[in-house]
Amino acid sequence: MSARPRLDSRAKSHLSYFAYASHRFSGLLLACFLPLHFLMLSQSLRGAQGFEQSLALTDLWVFKFGEWALVILLAVHLAGGLRLLILEFGPWNGLRKGWIQLSTLFGIACGLLFLYLAN
């Protein structure tokens, strides 16, 4: 005897749900990151040298990985957000699945571009 089945991953295995999940996940992580980002930047109040000293902390590889991940999250959240704005404010033309595919490519492209440009 067990409880009746509930909605599981089979009901959510479609592109539009994936877009929702990525947008929520990226938004949550970005929201957590934002105060830290501002805290870091406010170290600029110490002047160029003091700022440089605080920035030295970010040379650790875990921060470099974090920067790369955050750029991707930002790109994904931006693209997904624009899709939502079109869905809600624009003329209806389906769930804009082409946009989701483009957003994913955009996220990957930003990730690659970051790796290429950063030293």
Partner: peptide, 28 residues
């Protein structure tokens, strides 16, 4: 969100411009 759409797009572009060859406090 509409405001952020513009800001984030600009910010991303700036990030890619700024990180070329490393990023120092001086540069920022």
């Amino acid at each position: 969100a509409m405001v952020l759409g513009i800001c984030v797009a600009a910010h991303l572009a700036m990030i890619f411009y700024a990180i070329r060859g490393g990023l120092t406090a001086q540069e920022i």
